[in-house]
Design a protein around this nucleic acid. Structure first.
Lengths: 369, 369
DNA sequence: TACAAATTTGGGAGCGCTCTCAATATCAAA
DNA sequence: TTTGATATTGAGAGCGCTCCCAAATTTGTA
């Protein structure tokens, strides 16, 4: 009897358990410790890769863990360690409605990818209705649930931002918020990107350049318009208010804005998003104009649709996936190293020149001269 | 001194705390209980809406909770109650790569919406890389983290399904899995939907109907093809293998498949997804054909792109958002009422008739006769 | 060989909640 | 008033882990 001893039996039980129920063996650290013949503390050290364990003991414990398929209990660990290894991505309502727009899915993908890499779990909060907005607060503020929050800016959502920021909770805002004092945020350099895009049009010789802006109650919309204005005034040109039409980042919005611009006979349009650019191109074509011969277009985002042969849209490429990844990195930095001082990350963009701006034709013209 | 008593002071502290730090006041139930002059147990009852509390006490406690901005600690609650109020949505790799496809964002939206409604938190697992797939298992099996899992079917992912199903953990599969024994899943009635779509084409008088299928290693692909075959054979027609081309649910895949079909001069095509249909239409147009005059198309999904005037695609509408919501409902049912017996939910679809099938023209023809 | 120092281990007190069970308070009917 | 039933409350034992501190062991050095 004694030959078998207690240990082998425990091993056997572990193996059986791991076959019988590979997902959720209800083993505790205590069980593992007992089977490995050590204390709970030591078992915990092995699980958490604490260096203060002798090699022989570490191996013995790891063996038991492997054989049993043990996984630490997330809630217990969170409770004791004050860390949940989970971060929240909050996409406000104005945003989630156009979840059909590929921007947010891709952002989400970037964020999810980064979370995987860092072994964090991603909690997704899509605020669909007004009630969700109220409900969200208790949800994300369930203490012990989240280690940090990644919040997409949006107009009207500043109440949330205010509340979040006034706490000492790690929060990163995706997109420059209106009030940036003390807040960590990450954004692309919208102003310079727009400026570059419009300068490109100017260099190609266009004289009556219009713009279709995004919402003017969002920083994205404002910054991109500012870039347009900067490029125009740099030339010593008069800003023509009529050539600036505010829209809403949707395709239909772009279509309607273009209808408004057409009578003014612009020779080029800078649209603050690809979706709006596509809508605007449709409107131009409906009016019998040919792109880029009669009118040139530059968009913003470089969505997959931009490169379709129908449009061949010259546009500003945003590194969306990397943006999401960087946002997560920043958030984890806040979590691990404290929220002070606040971090600001500005990412560069790239002008992708295709056909809609008429660059190829223009070049041919200038070469012919 | 005694006039003030202990209670008002606690109230004051609570109010100050709630102003000073609205997000994460580190109050425990014990604190609330003390301030309200009751026991922790009673305070817990109030928080959890237990009916066995007298009205006066309930109000007193609720007042304190409101004043302090108290929120229960998620991890502590999970640990004690064995419920995390969190469910996981797992989207396998084959799926997350085409996260550009609007289907999955919309599904996610439906799921998120339903989670909000049920006060569950949604954990999103996007498996991007091979490593993610390995890493995912420990993540989702962190005990105490998730109450249930919603898993999107995909070819190759059946290892995960097997593991998950062999446990007694609440799991709902989105999309019929290959081995459905004992598993709860939810799906749309792909076979009948495809059958209807093809029957519609037959009724319109088309004789040489081709199909562009999805992957043949997925049940969606197989079921939709079956629907096509059923409709054809029902007519007593010979199935022409050459008119069936396997593709991959992408636009480019649809384009290439159509290139293959064009020489066979089909008069109508049933594509197993809108994206493939769009690609196929492009190919047909590139070949100088006009839709629906020279060739008719029916798609599947009813993505927003289907209703654009460029295509006006006749297609099978899937209730994606409701699908996601129903999936969550089912999962919660499993969580609350046990996983046995396994549930099977099949949702109906709707054929949306637009122009690409030529229904309007055909009708005019028949009316003229 | 002895002793200090370093390394490795175990014990125990929480983390903040739930939940059972027993104690107390309340109320109606006898 | 008493009694039994019912409604309301409180005490206490966990849930499974981390982390501090002290105990035990090993190592190095005089």
């Amino acid at each position: 009897m004694d030959i078998l001893g207690a240990l082998p039996i425990f091993y056997l039980i572990g193996i059986i358990q791991s076959i019988w129920n590979p997902l959720v063996p209800n083993l505790t650290l205590e069980d593992i410790a007992k089977q490995a013949g050590v204390s709970r503390s030591t078992a915990s050290r092995v699980v958490n890769n604490d260096p203060n364990v002798s090699n022989s003991v570490r191996m013995k414990v790891q063996e038991v863990i492997l054989a049993t398929g043990y996984h630490p209990h997330a809630a217990a660990r969170s409770l004791a360690s004050h860390r949940s290894w989970m971060i929240g991505l909050v996409l406000p309502r104005t945003v989630s409605t156009f979840f059909t727009d590929p921007y947010f899915p891709r952002l989400t993908q970037g964020v999810a990818q980064a979370c995987n890499q860092h072994n964090y779990t991603l909690a997704l909060f899509l605020l669909d209705t007004k009630e969700d907005e109220k409900r969200i607060f208790p949800l994300i503020s369930r203490r012990g649930q989240l280690d940090g929050i990644l919040l997409q800016t949006a107009p009207l959502e500043d109440i949330l931002i205010d509340k979040l920021v006034s706490s000492d909770f790690p929060v990163v805002i995706a997109g420059r918020p209106f009030k940036a004092n003390g807040i960590s945020y990450i954004d692309v350099d919208n102003l310079n990107a727009a400026h570059n895009a419009v300068c490109h049009l100017i260099q190609l010789g266009y004289k009556r350049i219009g713009t279709i802006t995004g919402w003017m109650n969002s920083t994205v919309g404002i910054d991109r318009k500012e870039g347009y204005l900067k490029a125009i005034t740099e030339q010593g040109w008069q800003v023509q208010e009529k050539l600036i039409v505010e829209s809403d980042f949707t395709e239909n919005g772009g279509y309607l804005a273009m209808k408004q611009l057409l009578p003014l006979k612009p020779d080029a349009i800078f649209a603050a998003s690809d979706t709006m650019a596509i809508g605007a191109i449709r409107a131009a074509r409906d009016a019998g104009l040919s792109v880029p011969v009669d009118i040139a277009f530059v968009g913003f985002d470089d969505l997959p649709v931009a490169s379709l042969s129908d449009f061949n849209l010259t546009t500003v490429r945003q590194p969306i996936i990397q943006f999401g990844a960087k946002a997560v990195d920043t958030l984890i930095d806040l979590i691990e190293n404290g929220i002070k001082p606040s971090r600001r990350i500005i990412m560069e963009t790239e002008l992708v020149i295709r056909d809609s701006c008429g660059a190829s034709q223009k070049k041919m013209v200038s070469e012919r001269l």
